[in-house]
Amino acid sequence: MESLINVNCSTIECASPAAPIWQDILAQAMTGELIAAMNYTSLSEICDDPEEVADALEHAEIERGHATRFAAEGRKIGVDVTNNVEAKHWTRLREAFLRCVRERDFIACLIVQEIMLESFAVASYARVGRVAPGSLGVTFAAIAAEEEDHVDHAMSILRAERALDAERFDEKVYRLHLEVMTTLAKMLAKECKDGHCEVCHATCVKPALFDVSLSAAELRGASLQQYLKTLDMLGIPGEVTLTWVAQLPI
């Protein structure tokens, strides 16, 4: 069941030349958090254990909290942070997750959300956190750390699952990699070759990232690095995962 997401943000006149850039970065982050909240809510619907249901709903609430914090940071710098959970790339990612839900594949859901989407979030928020000014940077860094913390629990579940049948587990991860990481790779590409992402409020923000000491290449590199390291921690052979990543669309 999809919940209606509504985060109200009042419009305030932009205060600095970099504000529109941060506005788009916050919009992507906020959209990602809301997608995560939707995913955890959907995950709760296939959990059998009441504790797992509570855990999933708690995660959903935490992600909604992250979205609210991003919106608040936008207000502080004088921008209205919009979100678009129906933007084309985010829709594909959401659909990939919902397929796992329909198949009642709890492990696949964890792989998509905790390994793939969270790697992207942890890495890109951490980079933004280093360069963003004031409380904006503090918030991004703090949320990056929080996201990294709650991956640990999922990692132990996934490692245990892999220990039962490594070959089958790795095949599942690869199948999901093809579906999810291909879409993430397009989102992280240096240029949006598939047209407007439908989240940036005007033109694509990627060329302007240099003005705030960021770049699409850096965000992509950091995300892929985090993803590879996370797969390493799962125990999947490094030469295998390197081939997966090398074959992503650039």
């Binding site: 690095q225 590879l228 490094g238 090398a246």
Partner: peptide, 30 residues
């Protein structure tokens, strides 16, 4: 990287390789 990508995929442009390679954590290749 061309070998890892496989013959059916185009080689990565030089600028993309310079952007991506430094981010790859050390690992076995073969």
């Amino acid at each position: 990287l061309a070998v890892l990508r496989g013959r059916e995929r185009t080689r990565l442009p030089d600028d993309e390789i310079r952007d991506i390679l430094p981010w790859i954590p050390p690992r076995a290749i073969c």
